[in-house]
Amino acid sequence: MSKLFCSLMLAASCFLLVGCGDAGPSSVVENAQQSDVDEYNRMLQEEQAQMKEGMEAAAKEGIKGY
């Protein structure tokens, strides 16, 4: 029973240590160039426009849920 308890405590300690990282928030775009951010935003807008077109086409076809 003590081996099981020790194993569980060791595993719990490992999980706690893995979960701990740098203190404070970080930003994904912190070191990105503005042109890369602009390109990402452009691609996002294109994808949203395509999704909207698809939803409108589905609604015209009578597909329910759109």
Score class of each variant (00 low, 15 high):
M55W: 05
A11M: 09
K52Y: 00
V18T: 08
E47Q: 13
L16F: 08
M55K: 15
Q33E: 11
L4P: 00
F15Q: 05
G19M: 06
D38I: 13
S35T: 08
A49S: 12
C14N: 04
S35F: 02
Q48Y: 01
E46G: 01
R42Q: 15
A11F: 13
A49M: 12
Q34S: 12
V28F: 03
D38R: 06
Q33N: 10
M9R: 09
A12T: 05
S26H: 02
L10G: 08
Q50A: 13
S7Q: 07
Q33T: 14
L10Q: 11
L16A: 11
A59H: 07
S2I: 09
K60T: 07
E61C: 02
L16E: 05
L44D: 05
M51Q: 15
M55F: 02
Q50T: 00
N31A: 07
L16Y: 07
S2D: 15
E39A: 15
V18F: 07
D38K: 14
N31R: 04
A32N: 06
A12W: 05
E56Y: 00
K60Y: 08
E30L: 02
E47C: 05
D38N: 14
D36P: 00
Q33A: 12
L44M: 12
A57R: 11
F5V: 13
S35C: 01
A11S: 07
Y40L: 15
E30D: 09
S2V: 15
L4W: 01
S7P: 02
A57V: 06
G24D: 03
S26L: 00
M51W: 06
A49V: 03
A23L: 14
F5Q: 13
Q45M: 03
M9S: 12
K60F: 03
E39I: 03
A12G: 12
C14K: 07
A32Q: 13
A12Q: 09
Q33C: 01
G24F: 02
L44T: 11
D38F: 04
L44W: 07
E30Y: 01
G19F: 04
S13R: 05
E39D: 12
L4T: 12
V37P: 04
M9C: 11
P25V: 04
Q45T: 04
L44Y: 06
E56D: 12
M9I: 15
L17E: 07
C6F: 04
A23E: 13
A49I: 02
Q48R: 12
A58F: 01
